[in-house]
Design a protein around this nucleic acid. Sequence first.
DNA 1: GTCTATATTATGATAGAC
DNA 2: GTCTATCATAATATAGAC
Lengths: 214, 214
Amino acid sequence: MPDAAPHRPQQRSAETREKLVEAALQVFAERGFEGATTRAIVDRAGVALAALPYHFKTKELLWRAVADHSFGRFAEQFSARIAGLEGVDSRTRLRLLLGDYVRFAASHPELHRFMQDASSESTERLRWLVEHHVRPMYETLAELAELPRTTGADAWHPGHLLYAVIGTVATPYAHAAEFELLTGERPDQKQLIDRHIDMLLGLFLPGSEGASHE
Amino acid sequence: MPDAAPHRPQQRSAETREKLVEAALQVFAERGFEGATTRAIVDRAGVALAALPYHFKTKELLWRAVADHSFGRFAEQFSARIAGLEGVDSRTRLRLLLGDYVRFAASHPELHRFMQDASSESTERLRWLVEHHVRPMYETLAELAELPRTTGADAWHPGHLLYAVIGTVATPYAHAAEFELLTGERPDQKQLIDRHIDMLLGLFLPGSEGASHE
DNA sequence: GTCTATATTATGATAGAC
DNA sequence: GTCTATCATAATATAGAC
């Protein structure tokens, strides 16, 4: 790591951008695009109000930067795993990917909340998001996991299967506060995450239970 | 139906309240609590701005009225079915309830969006919602469906199972705009709803497929 | 019970000093 | 690049006429 405290200008700038994007992801996920105020975002980022229009021009463009950042992190998280899946049989592939996805959703519940907020209306923002991030990700996943075929259920609509996986994986974490109030337990504890993965394997890949905690 | 056009005062009042609650449900679901403006709500309801504070005092109290209304309709939808389930074996019970739930979620995707918005932060609103509506509903369902036992999976955490069911059922409809942009098909068509139910039966009650479209 | 008009506060974005 | 101060608009809620 280079010298601390007073950084070079372009480094400070990059840090401010980074802080704004991370804070904006949280606030967009918590309060939705319309409910997220620029003041709440800059307060959480610990930067001045005017830093936001300086770096991103508008709230809308900040939102796009947040989407790029989040899907980038999602892809990054999986690229190492995916590289190691060459030649692995598709059942094992699915098992490993599902565990990864659950752990990702548990540590980044904001992504699913962000997506549901974007999907609640058919806006230009949503069209941009689908074409730039959702469709490319979907095509990669479909190819990699051969989703419809390996489950042995050709009759299932690929959209239903996709949203069933997303829904079962992400809902406990997207509704974490509700989950905790209802059950008294936090869904993002390691122990509960492992039980969650076991349940999902039982649901989507019967016979694969218990082999997920590597 | 009583006489049309110029109604009696208390009837007009009830109609205004009803229009406000229905409009507010849509707007809260689309834009979240913070993003929902009272102007957007009264515009959609077709009433004057001042009608909102007159009938509900604050946006917060309107939100509670929306929750009461939505969970009331949910319970109502199921009470007829539930009354007919006396003595029916629990597998059949689950099959029928699941189909009902999918059809409900397809025609009322707002309820799931409303819930996820409420769950995105641990607020006083969420606590109120869990204690007044979520927990009572959960206890009724758990009792009725004997959820954990009939699936033959005692090891599953009841919270995981609950949110897995909610997630698989509601996600395609909560993300309907995204689903349509991605697949080119609307998830709320009757044909796709029936395929969705078949998939869910295959997932949660293997062996029960195809018998759901009554 | 419902409306028009308005008080008050909060919002997104900008200007200009540093 | 970042800050303080500020503009123009839009928000929730209220007052008072009808």
